[in-house]
């Protein structure tokens, strides 16, 4: 791909990982998820793994992605750049990828919970939304 004939291809944010092989971290991550899920089922204790802080290679990500797979839920959140929330094949295990405005990954998490916090509507926002809707319907009614 390092050819001059490709100079006009726009490349945005090439992945930071340079090496191609497996680092051996994937097994550890999978075992950690298993332990978190067991704890969650037994006690309701939620947990998370920050993938950004681990030295993972491109191949590692590939393995994790194919192993965990895509589940039933796939959500996009649009605040200061997009955020992808995907449930994996294993209900309760969520993969959350946070991008900034420039579409760089700023956080990459595996969460074990029924529903990630960021998907829930914040209670204050709900209350404020209610107030707004009341104002709006009040205004409509008045018209």
């Amino acid at each position: 791909m390092n050819s001059l004939t490709h100079i006009n291809i726009k490349v945005i944010n090439p992945l930071p990982c340079q090496s191609a092989g497996l680092s051996g971290n994937t097994d550890a991550i999978l075992h950690e998820i298993l332990a978190l899920l067991e704890a969650f089922v037994a006690t309701g204790q939620t947990g998370a793994i920050d993938l950004h802080s681990l030295p993972l290679t491109v191949a590692d990500y590939e393995v994790l992605r194919t192993t965990l797979g895509d589940g039933e839920v796939h959500a996009h959140i649009n605040v200061i750049g997009k955020t992808e929330v995907r449930e994996t094949l294993y209900p309760g295990v969520w993969w959350l990828t946070y991008y900034n405005m420039e579409e760089d990954i700023v956080a990459d998490l595996l969460e074990v919970t029924t529903i990630p916090e960021i998907l829930k509507s914040p209670a204050e926002d709900v209350r404020e939304g209610l107030a707004c809707l009341r104002d709006l319907t009040g205004a409509v009614t008045m018209m």
């Binding site: 939620t46 947990g47 998370a48 920050d50 605040v79 200061i80 955020t83 900034n100 700023v106 926002d125």
Partner: peptide
């Protein structure tokens, strides 16, 4: 929090901002 809401910054974006900061600081995800 109030100031952000008034500025049109949603709580989600604030949570996201905090998540990014926590990740940068290598703090536990929670």
């Amino acid at each position: 929090g109030a100031s952000l809401v008034r500025s049109g910054v949603s709580r989600r974006s604030f949570l996201k901002f905090c998540t990014a900061m926590a990740s940068l600081m290598a703090l536990p995800p929670g």
